[in-house]
């Protein structure tokens, strides 16, 4: 569960993006063609107070519109489903359902996560300022929330897009004190047939 090395190789040789406008247009077209995604994910949590990073793994699924499933398998089993403005969480001992609209923290987080996965967040100029970079492997966008309240929760957001299919490969959420959460998506499959039951609460 402990990751000894820092997974920041994707930031090597980054330079300002030549044509962010063209990239955004392509991303919108690519996102429109994706109706569902499945992938594995590795989540790395870095806290300044700890010498080691906390690592968790699991399976991710997304289906339009706004259906997200995070199934953590290591170090403990935990399921999060976000669908129809409801968030469902289940572990071995308990289950909870939350109305996202009535919980300001989850409302922000849901909008942000969904926006990152679908690429919509790059069209949101009201809530985020953006900087665009690229290298041979990735398009890389750094977002800074404009709202002081959101910035207390998320100082910066970094998204790495695969150059070939413009899918999100890595997501890094930087918090106060430079603590961060980095999620890496691997084994991604675009447009698989995902049964709707994967996003129902039971």
């Amino acid at each position: 569960m402990v990751l000894q090395t820092c997974l920041l190789a994707g930031q090597e040789n980054m330079k300002p993006m030549n044509d962010p406008g063209s990239f955004s247009d392509r991303l919108i077209r690519a996102s429109a063609a994706v109706n569902s995604i499945t992938s594995d994910f590795t989540q790395e949590k870095s806290l300044s107070v700890l010498n080691e990073k906390i690592l968790s793994k699991g399976k991710f699924a997304f289906k339009k519109e706004n259906n997200i499933r995070w199934e953590y398998t290591e170090p403990y089993r935990y399921l999060i489903i976000i669908s129809n403005n409801q968030m469902f969480m289940r572990d071995d001992k308990s289950r909870k359902q939350i109305d996202i609209q009535s919980n300001p923290m989850f409302r922000e987080m849901n909008g942000f996560i969904t926006g990152c996965i679908q690429g919509d967040i790059l069209r949101n100029d009201n809530d985020y300022s953006k900087e665009y970079f690229e290298n041979e492997k990735y398009y890389y966008v750094k977002l800074v929330p404009r709202s002081d309240k959101v910035r207390q929760m998320l100082k910066e957001v970094h998204i790495w897009f695969n150059r070939s299919d413009l899918g999100v490969e890595k997501l890094k959420m930087v918090e106060s004190g430079n603590d961060y959460t980095q999620i890496m998506f691997t084994g991604k499959i675009l447009n698989p047939d995902i049964p709707v039951e994967k996003f129902t609460f039971k």
Partner: peptide, 13 residues
């Protein structure tokens, strides 16, 4: 003591 939510966001420290 640090509390982080399921999505990795720090709630309190």
């Amino acid at each position: 003591v640090v509390f982080i939510n399921e999505l990795g966001i720090k709630i309190f420290d």
